[in-house]
Every structure is written in structure tokens, then in C-alpha cells.
Simulated scan of single mutants.
Amino acid sequence: MNTTTTRRAAAAALLAGTTTLGLLSATAPANASDDRVERTGQCSGSARWDLKVKTDDGGLEVEGEVDSNVNGQTWSWRIVHNGSVSARGTATTRGPSGSFSVERRITNLAGTDRVTFAASRNGQTCRGSIRF
């Protein structure tokens, strides 16, 4: 192997390592004690859902969001905690993104908590769960 080929291979390896390091630091939490868990996914139609759970003063803060990219849609939603409905209601998507979000504080039970956010509208359903 000649010197030019060796230098190019070394430079490529260095660049790949630097790029990987940059990606890792971009995805690392800003605060090492941040215990937030977040999940996102596709609804049964074109909308997307987002669910976040984190500790808050001994309880759990839950945020559920639906983004349909259409303003003025009314959705039914519910938050289920370990099999029991903790909160429910309706929300309307608003601009500029055509989304809605709900935040609730629930009790942090002993052991692992399972939190589910579900929303539905005209046959389209969104559902996400987190074990916390």
C-alpha cells in the first residue's frame, strides 16, 4: 500500500470517528439527571403521536401530543395509568402545525408504571405506551 492510500484511509477513519462522536453528542441529554422518556409513532392514518413521561415532585408528568397537520379537528383522548383511566377529554388541533397536546400530573406508583396515551377521531386512532 502506498503512502497516499494509507493517508487517505487514516483520514477517512478519523472523519468517520469524528462524525460518529458528533452524532452521539447531539443525541445525549443536556442534563445527565434528566429522566424523561419519550416515544413517537404513526397513527392509523396520516397523523403522528408523541408521548413523554418524566418525574415531577414525586409524581409523573405526562404529555401526549397528536400532530395531524390540519387545524380545527376535534379529537377524543385519554391517559391510562397501569390499566386505569387517569384523565380523558377532547382537544382541537390548532395552528400553525395542526396539533394539540395535553399535560397531566399523575401519581408515581411503586414499581414500574405503564402510561398509555390514546387519541381518536373519525376512525383514526393514535396510541403509544411507556414503561417508566
Rank of each mutant, 00 (worst) to 15 (best):
D50V: 06
S44M: 05
A87Y: 07
T74E: 13
G123K: 10
Q124R: 12
L15K: 07
R94G: 09
R36I: 03
P29Y: 08
S97T: 15
A13G: 03
S25C: 00
T93R: 05
V66T: 04
S25K: 04
N31H: 07
L21G: 03
A30V: 09
F117S: 02
W77E: 00
G59Q: 13
T112L: 07
I79D: 01
D67Q: 12
D50W: 10
A30T: 11
R78E: 14
D56A: 14
V85S: 12
T20F: 04
R39L: 10
V53Q: 04
A28Q: 09
A119N: 00
Q42H: 09
I106V: 15
G83S: 05
E103K: 15
L21D: 00
D57R: 13
N31K: 06
N69G: 08
N71P: 04
V62G: 02
T125N: 14
T112G: 07
T40R: 11
A30R: 02
S25E: 05
T20M: 09
N122M: 09
R104S: 06
S99C: 09
I79F: 07
S44A: 11
L23D: 01
T20E: 01
W49P: 03
V70M: 11
A118Q: 10
G83I: 06
N69H: 08
N31A: 10
S33L: 14
D50R: 11
V102N: 01
A26T: 02
V62M: 09
A13N: 05
G59C: 09
K54R: 15
E103H: 11
R88N: 14
V102A: 03
L60C: 06
V80S: 07
R78H: 06
T18K: 02
S101E: 08
R104C: 00
R78Q: 15
G59L: 07
K54N: 13
G58F: 11
R121T: 07
F117P: 00
R127H: 09
S76E: 14
S97E: 12
G111Y: 10
R104Q: 14
S86T: 12
H81P: 04
V66Q: 01
N82S: 10
R121L: 12
G64N: 01
P96D: 13
S101P: 01
S33E: 08
T90H: 14
G72S: 08
T116L: 04
G128H: 00
C43I: 08
T40L: 05
A119Q: 06
P96L: 13
V85I: 15
A16D: 00
G111V: 11
N122Y: 03
S99P: 00
G41M: 10
